[in-house]
Simulated assay, not measured.
Amino acid sequence: MLFGRKKRSIVRVLVVEDEPLIAFDTEHLLSDASYQIVATVDRVAEAIAVLRSDSDVDLVLLDVNLADGSGLDVARAAGERGVAVLFVTGNFPAEAMALAAGCLAKPYQQRDLIGAIEAIEANIAGRKTRRLPTGFRLFAIPDAAPVAPGPEVDAR
């Protein structure tokens, strides 16, 4: 590994958020951090359709309360495909813990979102995380959510 390069297993992200400004900011932040946005959707049905398509997704960034239903349904569909889930919400229900790799409370700082994704990635790889971001809770990775190694990405 070269100095400044980090091999990532989480590269392709599905953003499921029904607040347009938050969705736009999240897309911009993750793209700038060299993540690939598979899609940004605001409905349960659209998110499930992306997960059931041929799209490669490493992580679903998911709000719990969506305009047309519950993000828990999306998390279940992600689990069926072995895709890790990071809930980003102000209202996290206890039953969602079994479906997610972690939860980041809204509102959050941009660096905390990146840190939460990195903590999930480290957890999946069996590495310890020194410090968790503010407002982030890391859960045991559900058995159905291994992340396949992604392409090497320059994470500078």
Results as ranks from 00 to 15, higher is better:
71 G>P: 01
105 A>I: 10
22 I>N: 11
94 A>G: 01
75 A>S: 09
47 A>E: 07
34 S>Y: 11
109 Q>H: 15
60 V>A: 09
92 F>Q: 13
96 A>P: 04
74 V>K: 07
112 D>A: 08
59 L>C: 07
143 D>L: 07
23 A>V: 05
29 L>Q: 09
48 I>K: 09
71 G>M: 07
30 L>R: 05
36 Q>R: 03
79 G>F: 03
38 V>P: 03
111 R>S: 14
80 E>T: 02
78 A>T: 02
53 S>W: 00
121 E>Y: 06
138 L>W: 01
128 K>P: 02
23 A>W: 07
20 P>S: 11
114 I>V: 14
32 D>P: 05
144 A>C: 11
135 G>S: 08
97 M>K: 15
26 T>N: 12
18 D>H: 10
35 Y>A: 07
53 S>D: 00
49 A>K: 00
131 R>W: 02
65 N>D: 15
125 A>S: 14
139 F>P: 06
105 A>N: 13
89 T>R: 00
121 E>G: 02
48 I>D: 06
102 G>R: 04
14 L>E: 03
58 D>M: 01
21 L>C: 00
11 V>E: 11
65 N>Y: 03
54 D>N: 13
116 A>P: 11
24 F>S: 08
92 F>C: 11
88 V>Q: 07
122 A>N: 15
91 N>P: 05
111 R>L: 11
76 R>F: 04
105 A>W: 03
101 A>K: 13
19 E>V: 07
113 L>T: 04
99 L>P: 08
54 D>E: 14
117 I>Q: 11
96 A>I: 01
27 E>G: 09
138 L>I: 06
64 V>I: 10
74 V>G: 08
84 A>G: 11
132 L>S: 13
139 F>L: 04
127 R>E: 14
56 D>T: 14
93 P>W: 03
45 A>W: 00
91 N>Y: 14
92 F>M: 15
28 H>W: 12
116 A>I: 03
33 A>R: 13
78 A>V: 02
94 A>Q: 09
56 D>M: 10
127 R>S: 11
72 L>Y: 06
81 R>Q: 08
126 G>R: 07
49 A>T: 00
104 L>N: 10
87 F>E: 05
51 L>K: 05
62 L>Y: 06
92 F>E: 14
60 V>R: 03
98 A>Q: 14
96 A>F: 05
68 D>L: 12
51 L>P: 00
56 D>W: 08
94 A>L: 10
126 G>Y: 12
107 P>S: 09
96 A>Y: 04
132 L>R: 05
85 V>D: 03
56 D>Q: 12
124 I>Y: 04
47 A>Q: 13
70 S>T: 01
139 F>G: 06
45 A>P: 06
105 A>P: 12
34 S>P: 02
42 D>N: 13
112 D>K: 01
48 I>E: 09
70 S>P: 00
112 D>Y: 02
24 F>P: 00
141 I>S: 04
98 A>L: 13
103 C>M: 12
31 S>W: 04
132 L>D: 14
133 P>R: 01
116 A>K: 10
102 G>F: 02
87 F>R: 05
55 S>E: 01
62 L>H: 01
63 D>C: 02
80 E>N: 10
109 Q>V: 09
36 Q>A: 12
98 A>R: 08
19 E>D: 15
108 Y>Q: 10
57 V>L: 02
97 M>S: 13
101 A>D: 13
15 V>I: 11
70 S>M: 03
93 P>G: 10
